[in-house]
Amino acid sequence: MSTNYNMILAGFGGQGILFAGKVIAYAGLMEDKEISWLPSYGPEMRGGTANCSVCISDKAIGSPLVTAPNALIAMNLPSFDKFIDTVVPGGTVVVDSFLIDKKVDREDVKAFYVPATKLAEENGLKGLANIILVGKLFKELGFCSEESLYKAIEKCVPARKANMLELNKKAIKIGMEQ
């Protein structure tokens, strides 16, 4: 199993793309890996695509800007179109199929379709489609231990939103069931 993960998470601003990336980064930190998290901060964040690069590695990370990801989470069509061809052969792609009505037309990547936004609404987890997708990616890649992932959520959910903790963990579990 590869221990170097170069991930891109991409979607609309407001979908919690940056937060989801931070959860994955913290999960790597919990396991004493080298990690980096780099957000897009350009004008595209206003209405178009928001994305972030996350690297988890055993070695010091060179460029934190991921240009050839081995894992992609896509939460809207513009992001899907922008990044799908950059995924390296053998890479893993997780798509919110409720928002993206398109299949991956590549044979050389592993694609998974999760109607995360719909699942979130059905389970009283509005706004946590991002974390459902993280749960799915975790199930497929095992980029950390399950314990580290929950610890990461505890690190990322601010104290004043403690009620969100269990909801986030529930979202991970739903993602893992997909």
Partner: peptide, 10 residues
């Protein structure tokens, strides 16, 4: 630079 300013690391 903008990369170092924006990125998160441990």
């Amino acid at each position: 630079d903008g990369m170092l300013g924006q990125m998160m690391e441990p």
